[in-house]
Design a protein around this nucleic acid. Structure first.
Lengths: 165, 165
DNA sequence: TATTGTTATACTCTATAACTATA
DNA sequence: TATAGTTATAGAGTATAACAATA
């Protein structure tokens, strides 16, 4: 695994940042690296331990948060993906009995998606493990630092949303 | 586009975090949302304005940082992807005359990948625009806050690398 | 006409594994 | 045997656009 005599090649993508680069660029590269490291870990554990994927987990998380159910287009907006993809994921989960489509009386085009009982049980198990992984991955910081990071990311998010829209 | 009378559905994936959730979970969801917002913006601008993709841009960025050239397995490590993918991207870029494979005299199995002159010109253009986008996207913070964020992300990264390996 | 959701399609990105040529 | 790189393949993830049903 190690290459002791290797040339001085840095470790990862962030190494494209130079000393003179703008701070924003360095932040972006580091943000991307952090996210990819963690996301890859979470994806692989979800696959190995629960045979599922991150988008499926995310969709179930949204449903768990909204026991009244969510419409397809609401899921699409929350998950930040287009409608066709939501259909595909809901189809899979429905086939496995984890979610169900319930007719919306007020609008015969639409329906609300719910977790089934089995879906709730399955999700609770996954969510517990998921939270443990994440806590472990962020355990290198004090509580105070975590709060600071949370606040700074809130600023990033708010500004990015403004710029984009 | 807007739904004024819509039910109180929050805006995005991060809305799965509840008040009682562990800080780490809230950080992770916010980190993921920030990264996705920015990454999507960068991807779409790279595609629209330069007809390229983020992995291709990243690969060229690594080459620009290493004028002496990089071997395929070095690129693979730096970009955090497996070898087959690097071959595919390098093939595309070589076909477009942006990079070239140069034989490595010391090892006849290997070669070094370089940017061509055209590749350097093309990358310089893209990198300039890319930096402007990123600076704009992170402009909501003071310089001091940017430094703090950079430091906190360094901690996240370091710890994550330790946990994973 | 606009909206909800589905279907069909295509493309990018990625991992895995089998393969070759060389070390 | 181990390493450098390629090839083939499969699957995840995503966007786009055309479509049917309903509002």
């Amino acid at each position: 695994m190690s290459t002791p005599a290797a040339p001085p090649i840095p470790l990862d993508r962030e190494s494209v940042a130079r000393a003179g680069d703008h701070r924003a660029l360095r932040i972006w590269l580091r943000l991307l690296t952090c996210t990819q490291l963690i996301e890859r870990q979470v994806r692989s554990r979800l696959r190995e331990q629960f045979g599922t994927t991150l988008p499926r987990f995310d969709l179930m998380a949204q449903l768990e948060r909204h026991p009244e159910g969510l419409k397809m287009n609401e899921l699409s907006r929350l998950l930040m993906v287009t409608g066709g993809n939501v259909t595909a994921i809901v189809d899979q989960l429905e086939k496995e009995g984890l979610v169900e489509r319930v007719d919306e009386p007020a609008d015969r085009r639409a329906f609300r998606i719910h977790l089934t009982r089995a879906g709730e049980r399955t999700f609770a198990e996954m969510a517990g493990a998921h939270e443990e992984w994440v806590v472990e991955l962020f355990a290198g910081m004090s509580r105070r630092e975590q709060d600071e990071l949370l606040g700074l990311l809130a600023k990033v998010k708010q500004h990015a949303v403004e710029v984009i829209s």
